[in-house]
Simulated assay, not measured.
Amino acid sequence: MDHPHPANRGLFRATLAGPQARLTEAFYQLRVRPDCVSVPEFGLYGATLAVPGDAEEGAWKMASIRDEIFVVVSDCNYAHSRSERILPEGFVEFHFSIAGPASVDFSDTGHLHVNAPNLLVCSQGADVQYQVTCGPGPWQSVSMYVTRRYFDRLVHALGGEAERIRVDLASIGRDQIYNRQMPFSVDALHIAEQLLASPYSGPRQLLYLEGKCTEILCACIEMWLAHLRDDSPGETLSARDLRLIEQAQKMIVADLRVAPTIPELARAVGTNASKLKRGFKFLYGMTLFEYGHRCRMNHALHLLVDERMPVGQVALATSYQHQTSFTAAFRDYFGFAPKDARRLASPATQQRAVPDAPEAAQASMRARRTEDADKS
């Protein structure tokens, strides 16, 4: 297979069926590959697909269970960012993110940052498309795409309390996306790890995947019901909601000298504080406060290291009226004082210390501090 052009590196859909291919189209192409294994007696087929590229970047383990549940187990270490567009197909999706960051781009309507480890349950309306991107580095996940017909039968069979899940999903409009994020249960994490480390190949692997998928679906339903019992809200967001939330994000980064309150942001963009808080956590994987604090700290690092600005001026530029408060916050975030930033910063850190990538800056800083300690 020819290696894709760097600008067109995709995930499994694009690799199997081309840009903007649907999941079902990708699985059709999987089914006709010469290395596809099938167990027709049980309605199973699948294959392990090596990630195409200039280096070994891992594999996608893919299987179809009667074309009702589609499973993709990703055990990858991407050399470059990979992305592809997701078209609506009416699935109820369960995504176990075990290792590595990813993001979802709703074009002009916002970005969702997916942080591991967590379980994301989602379903998109018929008019919602988005772009998913996995950054370079390790990415381990288990994704199950369940047809609504199968899922409705499952919920009906469970009866009683599970009916609340059906009601949750029934409210999704054509231009809306529903999501529920929750931490792993111990049982679910154990099953996901078993799927990643399957000891089988060929038909036995397909039978193993089928059994484990039934098991992990039961764990998902139990986690979902537990969230409902705790009144932990799912979120149904329209394209307008996503645009307003992204406007709030832009307001935060536009002027880091001020720290607007949540009610102020909500009024400014034209939504209510409760929806803004929940929607922002959905899109950015953190609270409004956490996001604003992250942006201010990384902007402070940039001003200290690249602009060589005095600490007092940096404090004012990042919404702190008192230098002592800024110094305490900076030390708590990075693990060292502002006055030490220039000495500890590496060239790579100076380039990466931007509001959207604080982890990289912190890791580089901390590695440099360890080197300095070893030399002393």
Rank of each mutant, 00 (worst) to 15 (best):
N8P: 06
R9M: 13
L11C: 12
A21S: 15
L23K: 03
E25Y: 05
C36D: 06
V37G: 02
P40Y: 12
P40C: 10
A55K: 09
A55C: 07
A59K: 13
W60Y: 15
W60S: 01
A63E: 07
R66T: 13
V73E: 03
V73Y: 05
R82Q: 07
P88V: 13
E89K: 07
F96W: 12
S97V: 09
P101D: 09
P101M: 11
S103M: 11
H113F: 15
P117E: 06
L119S: 02
L120T: 11
G125N: 08
G125I: 08
Y130D: 11
Q140G: 02
D152M: 07
G160R: 08
G173L: 10
S185D: 07
Q194C: 09
L196Y: 05
P199Y: 08
S201T: 10
C213F: 08
C213K: 01
E215C: 09
E215N: 12
A226L: 09
G234Y: 01
R240Q: 12
E246H: 07
Q247F: 06
Q249P: 03
V253I: 12
D255A: 01
L256M: 04
T261V: 09
T261K: 02
E264G: 05
L276E: 00
T287A: 13
R294E: 15
R294S: 15
R296G: 03
L301R: 01
L303G: 01
R308C: 12
G312L: 04
V314C: 02
A315H: 02
A348C: 07
V354L: 00
A357V: 14
E359A: 12
A367G: 07
R369D: 05
D374V: 04
D374P: 02
K375T: 14
